[in-house]
Write a protein that binds this DNA or RNA. Structure first.
Length: 449
RNA sequence: GCCCCGAUGGUGUAGCGGCCUAUCAUCUCGGCCUGUCGAGCCGAGGACACGGAUUCAAAUUCCGUUCGGGGCGCCA
């Protein structure tokens, strides 16, 4: 039989108020809970905005509708038409007296994952049933916040005259090196999933677009198994010409600050759902020199394994700062700070040395406590110098042909950075596992869903 | 790449040689209930990852496999 009723939603649960008393509404959502008292039943209907209570009385309603509404399995998708009634007994002050119900999508039982159960599920179970996991308001909040963060970045870039670009994710050469890549077959040729847009965005500096940004995926085939790594992550990248490192840092500060303030302004309910409080950071962010950090760590005798001998020794200038070292620094600096003036050998080949000291680079990191958020710097734009640095690292010039070509025909000075979108989301939401901030995370063990 | 840890109903767990025909909660199904909102009450259902070994006896010990969690390095 054809259904002639228009089941389009007229209100979200959270939109209902005094003005709606004694009017008809159509709500669409999921049956969160059914409390059947025999001749009377309460159904909690959840939509994106919140929960509405439907109060069904067998005496005053069609028996068929009553039986349907009390028997529909929880988490089924239903549409309900009813009258909003004021009620002192209902928590919201109102309730819906339904008179028409349509089951749009019946849920099977039992659920692989309870949406409102009192028992928590493991991350693995949750990810296997992510669509159900996402029905939990506090999980949805993570992705509401993530969306705000990405848009805040976009907002700042566009205000600052950047052009949004997309660079290829399938590439022929082993790009910048330093990480394992996923290999793939490209019409019988070997190809790789790109680890970062670095070389492409730099190439754009030779075009006259001057300021570009990209928000897109990056792939790393590292078999790391930690709460802060993903094999596919979202990189917020930018590159700008004709300026110096400070211009880059300023844009970065603005992006981070805007992300915080937009989340504070628009996602206060989501922060509440996550029971997390944040404070917008003030600019400029503190700047720590690599050398100062090493001094501090050496003064407390932080030990680390020597790269060559493997023996334990005190940290010294030239060593990379281990996580344990950053944990020490985080005791005094639990929030955002830049780390500048890294030794050249700890930074990639495309980072420019300082004009005063060729051992020191113009590369920087942005940390939040012990967490690394951003990496960037002033780039080498002289083709001769760039070739030398590539060779010094033992990399094959042949693989960088397309990149180097752009430097041979008028490359202006430029700088830029890459920000891990998930790491920023993790910090702003206060979550401890980066997987929480991705709908369908890719890690060493997980390829589905 | 290196190192730890774990696997018990749909979900989350207890048990750590015989007391296990396996605990509790949640869940599912059936019954009662006209004001529930962590509903309540009565009844029922459902599990020891897989393979091997030790033992009179294994969920429990050992080995292997598979799957999962975490740490380090590296990075965003």
């Amino acid at each position: 039989m054809k259904d002639y009723i228009n089941w389009k939603r007229t209100k979200f649960a959270a939109e209902i108020g005094e003005d709606d008393y004694n009017t008809e509404v159509t709500l669409c959502g999921w049956v969160q809970y059914t409390r059947d008292l025999g001749k009377m039943a309460f159904i909690h209907l959840r939509d994106r905005s919140g929960v509405a209570q439907l109060t069904a009385l067998s005496k005053t309603m069609d028996k068929e509708i009553f039986d349907l509404i009390v028997s529909v399995p929880r988490e089924s998708a239903i549409s309900v038409r009813g009258i909003v009634k004021q009620s002192t007994q209902a928590k919201a002050g109102w309730e819906i007296i339904p008179y028409k119900v349509k089951v749009m999508g019946k849920a099977s039982t039992p659920l692989p994952l309870g949406v409102v159960d009192k028992v928590e599920a493991d991350m693995d179970t949750r990810l296997d049933n992510r669509f159900l996991d996402l029905r939990k308001p506090h999980i949805q909040s993570i992705f509401m916040i993530r969306s705000t963060i990405l848009n805040a970045a976009r907002e700042v870039f566009l205000e600052e005259d950047f052009v949004e670009i997309q660079t290829p994710k399938i590439v022929a050469t082993a790009t910048e090196g330093g990480t394992a890549l996923f290999e793939m077959n490209y019409f019988d040729k070997k190809a790789y999933l790109n680890q970062s847009p670095q070389l492409f965005k730099q190439t754009m500096m030779a075009t006259g677009l001057d300021r570009v940004f990209e928000i897109g995926p990056a792939f790393r085939a590292e078999e790391h198994d930690t709460v802060r790594h993903l094999n596919e992550y979202t990189s917020i990248d930018c590159e700008m010409a004709w300026g110096d490192l400070d211009d880059s840092l300023e844009i970065l500060e603005k992006v981070i600050q805007r992300a915080y303030s937009n989340v504070l302004n628009t996602n206060y309910m989501d922060l509440e759902n996550l029971q997390h409080k944040i404070v917008s950071p003030e600019r400029p962010f503190p700047r720590l020199k690599y050398g100062e950090i090493i001094e501090k760590l050496a003064s407390i005798d932080l030990e680390m394994a020597d790269e060559v001998s493997g023996k334990k020794r005190t940290i010294e200038w030239g060593d990379d700062i281990p996580l344990e070292g950053f944990r020490e620094i985080a005791k005094d600096r639990p929030s955002l700070y830049f780390v500048t003036e890294w030794p050249m050998k700890l930074k990639p080949f495309y980072i420019q040395p300082s004009p005063d000291d060729h051992e020191i680079s113009q590369g920087f990191d942005l940390n939040y406590g012990e967490k690394e958020l951003v990496s960037g710097g002033q780039r080498v734009h002289d083709p001769g110098q760039l070739k030398t640095l590539i060779k010094e690292r033992g990399l094959d010039l042949e693989g960088f042909k397309f990149y180097l070509k752009a430097f041979d025909y008028g490359m202006p000075p430029h700088s830029g950075w890459g920000l891990g979108a998930e790491r920023l989301t993790m910090i702003i939401t206060g979550l401890s596992n980066v997987r929480e901030t991705v709908l369908f995370p890719r890690d060493k063990h997980r390829l589905t869903p």
